[in-house]
Nucleic acid binder design. Structure first.
Lengths: 156, 156
DNA sequence: TGGTGGGCGCAATAAGACTGCGTCAGGCTG
DNA sequence: CAGCCTGACGCAGTCTTATTGCGCCCACCA
């Protein structure tokens, strides 16, 4: 895939869209100093190239009962291919697991889990992780305060 | 704030918008079986209540040179209020730090860092964390594979 | 210096976003 | 039980955006 040459304007478009994914094209055009037509063509080009992967709405975790955030380090009992595949698939199915990474560095898997509160997390820990024969050990890191949380990737 | 009663339709709207934040209101209306007018009114209500916090574009990390992901556990040298505030502020300013949490569980801070590659991460580790007098110890967990990564929170 | 490709703005059309208004169903009150 | 009130829906009309064809211009190449 051609890595797609990005100019100054493309970068500004991407930064704006990372901040406000639903901005009207006309306003987007104003902000970058172009007319709507070429602005839209640029955005479409970025979407089609796959550089813009998708647009999403971000909800308030507190308001929907997902304000309790925990980072979990998981060590599997054996490092087998089937074990890895199974565990990954299991996590993919769990709605409270927002992120699941296979890792290096003394930990097999790393999870970001969102629940309503400690009690609900405890249930997840006991019923899903501890009860899982693939899991040998876990280490839960409870989030007390979110200093920073962004989906916007820095460009250049 | 009234916790805002959500019915079946609201939940469907939220799930759709978490998946596609830029869907046209007319199409959204079709998907939930309403006409565009009340659909738009519901969405506005969810936005104004703060339940929908914002809309964003998600970019492809690989394509913009941010494909190398590391989870970092950071222990500060002293647990002082000023130290915590300073460190949090410093991380907020670093573009490669996507997330920064103050934590319980044997770790003071937890970071999610995105760089181009190992070399760039190493620079961050050495120049930003190791060189920081507030930092006593760090533990880097390199992500090898992303099994799951979503911004969509499960509803009810 | 004429040829060429890429990207821009213009302008017209189609599509979607908004909003005022009348209607209807459910819950509550006299 | 009938009338009242509230909330939410769909209809229509208006206004704003999105989308696309087209001609123009500039930079680069031969």
């Amino acid at each position: 895939m051609a890595s797609l040459q990005l100019d100054e304007t493309d970068i500004r478009l991407l930064n704006i869209l990372q901040r406000d994914g639903r901005i009207a094209n006309t306003e987007l055009a104003d902000e970058v100093g172009l007319t709507p037509a070429p602005t839209l063509r640029r955005v479409r080009r970025l979407e089609e190239a796959g550089l813009i992967r998708r647009y999403v709405a971000l909800l308030d975790p507190e308001m929907i009962g997902r304000g309790f955030l925990v980072m979990v380090r998981v060590t599997l009992s054996g490092q087998t291919k089937a074990g890895f595949e199974t565990f990954g698939e299991q996590m993919r199915r769990r709605p409270e697991v927002l992120e699941c990474y296979l890792c290096l560095g003394g930990t097999d898997y790393f999870l970001k889990v969102a629940t309503r509160d400690l009690m609900e997390y405890q249930r997840f820990l006991v019923d899903v992780l501890a009860a899982n024969p693939l899991v040998q050990h876990t280490d839960s890191i409870l989030v007390v305060k979110q200093e920073k949380q962004t989906t916007a990737l820095p460009l250049e």
